[in-house]
């Protein structure tokens, strides 16, 4: 094969990336100017962004649930993976470190089960989130130390806090 097509592809890629970068820059400049959204061309992009935010936070919540289910199997049902419990503990502490950041203003969406109260009563929402964050950190710590009783208590207390937030802020 002649090298021609390859250099052509590279050149095309370069042009494309320059264009893309220019577009990105234009977009971020527009954002810097805090220009109100007016251009219909951007509406689709924004919509996609919200969808991505919703996908992301739902994905995080499902990941959190997966670690909860796995931890329960180990701590309460005796699945023989005690040596891995700290992995779940660390993941939970990490994923739940800043729940409010998953719910930026304006990220309500048809596909989302987030209630408007998240933004209307953001004080209470942050309180719930902080409560969970602290309990997740405590569970993460307990799984490093290894006392089964402490781990189980920390685990159940973390679980209670999930329900407490869902109760008021999730449809």
């Amino acid at each position: 094969m002649s090298p021609r097509p390859l250099s052509f592809i590279l050149a095309a890629a370069l042009v494309a990336s320059v264009v893309a970068a220019g577009f990105g820059a234009a977009e971020s400049r527009a954002a810097d100017d805090a220009t109100p959204v007016g251009l219909p061309a951007f509406a689709g992009v924004q919509d996609l962004e919200v969808e991505a935010l919703v996908d992301h936070r739902q994905g995080v919540m499902r990941a959190v649930s997966g670690h909860m289910a796995a931890s329960a199997a180990i701590l309460l049902d005796g699945a023989p993976f005690e040596d891995r419990i700290s992995v779940h503990g660390a993941a939970l502490a990490g994923l739940l470190a800043d729940v409010p950041s998953l719910f930026p203003e304006g990220s309500a969406h048809d596909e989302s089960d987030a209630r408007p109260e998240i933004w209307e009563d953001s004080g209470t929402f942050s309180e719930r989130a902080q409560d969970t964050e602290q309990r997740a950190a405590a569970f993460g710590e307990a799984t490093q130390g290894g006392n089964a009783m402490e781990m189980t208590q920390a685990f159940i207390s973390l679980g209670d806090s999930c329900g407490a937030c869902h109760d008021s802020f999730r449809f």
């Binding site: 649930s65 997966g66 670690h67 909860m68 679980g159 999930c162 869902h166 109760d167």
Partner: peptide, 28 residues
């Protein structure tokens, strides 16, 4: 049944999700 018993104890379903709504009150 094990999942069911656990749900009534502290609200965790088999997926690791947690009960909300009036069931959360029933459990809590």
């Amino acid at each position: 049944e094990r999942h069911f018993v656990r749900y009534l104890e502290f609200g965790m379903d088999p997926d690791g999700d947690f009960a909300g709504g009036s069931m959360a009150d029933v459990i809590r």
